[in-house]
């Protein structure tokens, strides 16, 4: 592809700064919203799984101590 044509397109007729600033900030904000939601979901799942394991361990301990008793 012609480099000059790409450069001309990227310059957006002297409005390149405004066009790319609007698109760049929008991309960053929307990606942040998506990534934050994904991180929150995976963190929450890990936390709940750990909770479940702890509860299972505790109930196992209660059963074995009841047997010993």
């Amino acid at each position: 592809m012609d480099t000059d044509a790409i450069m001309q397109w990227a310059a957006m007729g002297q409005h390149g700064f405004y066009v790319w600033l609007a698109y760049g900030v929008s991309l960053v904000v929307l990606l942040l919203v998506i990534v934050k939601t994904r991180i929150e979901a995976s963190g929450l799942k890990k936390e709940l799984e750990l909770d479940l394991q702890l509860k299972a361990r505790e109930s196992g301990r209660t059963v074995s101590s009841a047997r010993e008793g």
Binding site: M12, G13, Y18, A22, Y23
Partner: peptide, 21 residues
Amino acid sequence: GLVYAPADYQQGESFRIIYVH
């Protein structure tokens, strides 16, 4: 919007911000 849409006859290329705004 950025590559194929034509530029606006008054605003020129800056009108392409419409596709995100």
